[in-house]
């Protein structure tokens, strides 16, 4: 039996330690060990974006990161997006625009959109669509999602 690796990391601002096997992805550990089940597994191959998280400021697919790679990194997941009961403006706008149906893709879209607006507070529609091209939704047809992101961006610019 291989010894597990002991990983020290910061998740949503909280110093976090976990034990993992080399085979486990960051998504496996978030969901199965740390019970942060907001990040979803749609494909496990980098195609759907349902597992999107931010690692050291970069948007990535948690299904394509080994959990051992998280040593000394900071990880942001959907669980850190609202401040207590107060929703992030993107979350509010997703609700207002009915930008979700089954909701499986939603955490990934929200994290990806958050990372876009942190870099570009005033994106064009086409910039939003390109940035979110790696997030798949089988329900909404994307228009409501794109409108919600543009509206949230306008809101956040004040």
């Amino acid at each position: 039996m291989m010894a597990k690796s002991h990983i020290t990391t910061v998740i949503n601002g909280d110093p976090t330690e976990f034990l993992c096997e080399t085979e486990q992805t960051l998504l496996d550990v978030l969901r199965d060990e740390l019970h942060l089940t907001g990040s979803k597994e749609g494909c496990a191959s980098g195609d759907c974006g349902a597992c999107s998280v931010i690692v050291d400021g970069r948007l990535v697919c948690a299904c394509l990161v080994l959990a051992v790679e998280a040593q000394d990194k900071t990880v942001e997941t959907i669980e850190g997006m609202a401040s207590g009961e107060r929703l992030h403006p993107l979350q509010t706008k997703f609700l207002e625009h009915a930008a979700l149906q089954c909701g499986v893709c939603t955490p990934g879209f929200l994290i990806a959109a958050k990372s876009l607006l942190e870099r570009n507070p005033d994106p064009t529609e086409s910039e939003v669509r390109y940035w979110l091209a790696g997030n798949l939704c089988r329900c909404t047809g994307y228009d409501k999602i794109v409108r919600a992101v543009l509206d949230a961006a306008a809101d956040m610019r004040g």
């Binding site: 980098g46 970069r58 948007l59 990535v60 697919c61 990806a112 091209a133 790696g134």
Partner: peptide
């Protein structure tokens, strides 16, 4: 190469 997420890696 790939999406924004893939570009990050």
């Amino acid at each position: 190469i790939g999406s924004t997420q893939i570009q990050g890696r």
